[in-house]
Simulated scan of single mutants.
Amino acid sequence: MPQPKSRRHGAELESAILDAAWAELVEVGYAKLTMEGVAVRAGTSKPVIYRRWPGRPELVLAAWRRRLPDGEDPPDTGGLRSDLLALMHRLLHRFQDTPRDVVVGLMSETCRDPQAFALLLRQIAAARQRPSVEAIVRKAVARGEIPPVEIPPRVARVPLDLIRAEAIFHHREIDEKTITEIVDDVFLPLLRGLAHQELHEEE
């Protein structure tokens, strides 16, 4: 239900607008979301929203970014494979909490606006998983599961990139089998291959 208008300012007003934008996304989907609908739900006006976000893509990106988890500790189950599986489940839940059409709609619309598209790509790339991957691998090295290995940024992005590809581009449901295959058939062999390569270069 739309909230009555009040003299909210600054962070309080922005929070109300972003909450309203996310609620509209969940209720009507990206294609039907309008700035007017968000304004009504937030109990404010369209000019107030436009002073903060120049268009629908920027507003939706801000609402989406606000809901992404931040500062989570990496999984620590005592084993490399189980840690990676736990991380994959965390990434999967992140996608499941986002309406399916949001990323697809954003990519379609922002392709016509280079600045908005660049913002979308930066936000997707900014998912805080590289420190988690590096921490998981460091613990595995300390336990003697794998030799010391340097994790390039592109390698650290592989798990999330594969989930995105399955969910967004191939429209497939991500199940336990998919997660296990990504870990067992792709990421673990990739890590071990990098570790073996570094050992060979040191000889």
Rank of each mutant, 00 (worst) to 15 (best):
E58W: 00
R8N: 10
L13A: 09
P69D: 13
D185W: 00
S82T: 07
D83C: 08
Q123E: 15
A135P: 07
R8E: 10
V141D: 00
E27T: 08
E14R: 04
R51L: 03
A195N: 07
L85V: 08
G78C: 02
A16H: 03
D97R: 14
R157K: 14
E109S: 07
R41E: 04
V102L: 12
E203W: 01
R56A: 06
P114I: 12
L68V: 02
A195Q: 09
R192W: 00
A126H: 10
A165P: 02
E150S: 13
E58K: 05
P159D: 11
A195D: 07
G43C: 05
T44K: 06
P159M: 10
R66Q: 15
E145W: 03
A39D: 01
E203A: 14
Q129C: 07
V40D: 01
A20T: 07
R154V: 11
H93Y: 12
A118C: 03
D76V: 15
P152D: 09
P74K: 00
I168L: 07
R66A: 15
E198M: 13
I49R: 01
P153V: 14
I182P: 09
D113S: 13
L199I: 10
W53R: 04
H170C: 11
G193E: 15
D161E: 14
Q3A: 15
Y30G: 09
V102D: 08
S6I: 07
V149D: 03
P159W: 01
A31H: 06
G29V: 05
M1Q: 15
D161M: 12
P74M: 04
K5W: 12
A126I: 08
T180V: 11
F117I: 02
H171M: 11
I17W: 01
A31I: 03
A125L: 14
D184L: 10
R67Q: 06
G78Q: 05
H9M: 03
P2R: 03
G78L: 02
L162H: 04
A20P: 07
R143A: 13
L199E: 12
G193C: 13
L80M: 05
G43N: 06
D19Y: 00
